[in-house]
Write a protein that binds this DNA or RNA. Structure first.
Lengths: 93, 93
DNA sequence: AATACTTGGTTTATATTATAAACTGATTTA
DNA sequence: TAAATCAGTTTATAATATAAACCAAGTATT
């Protein structure tokens, strides 16, 4: 049976990717409130997605506050779509 | 965000449930070959699904060999459908 | 101006999970 | 009768997810 990409088969990472697929960019705070994740968990999962090359995170300042803006990379986009396809075969959808 | 039932959000358990949803009964050997899982892993995951009440396993003899036949329970069926629905909202399908 | 509190995170420790390896007990085959 | 094989189970380990604790900078409070 075809593997489900383990990087995406994780509740929080999937939620994040799914948001980023529809939105073209989103910051840490937004992702945190949308997913209701803790900051620590979100931070870790964003790191993993970044390490995999599925997203990129740009840290900038807005006024005097830091802001981490995330967007999905082309590779992440492909991976997401492949994951959804694989899931379909698992679920017979 | 709505939770993805962690009992189903597991590659192997999901594959098993998905097979059982379409087939009304399947034995250990069949599930093993369809999923390409190791026997140990399959055994553990069947236990968890059983403990959750999502499947039931009947052990019988066929000739002199043991046979474990699995089928999904009504509760398991409901859980599976709820999971699929939850996933749809994650993936915006 | 010192103190406490919030914001936007990161690090680290822990609990849970998945998985394979090792094992068991019965059966067939050489 | 010894060696494979079958149908699983148990157990040890590796990987994962998650929250708690922490940090640095800014903001409000007394």
């Amino acid at each position: 049976m075809k593997e489900l990409d383990p990087l995406l088969h994780s509740q929080l990472r999937l939620a994040v990717m799914s948001i980023l697929m529809t939105v073209d960019e989103a910051d840490f705070v937004y992702l945190k409130q949308q997913t209701a994740a803790t900051a620590g968990n979100l931070s870790v999962q964003l790191d993993k997605l970044t390490a995999a090359g599925y997203i990129e995170v740009e840290k900038c300042f807005v006024g005097k506050k830091t802001r981490s803006v995330c967007r999905v990379t082309p590779e992440g986009c492909r991976a997401f779509e492949a994951y959804v396809e694989a899931l379909r075969t698992y679920l017979h959808l």
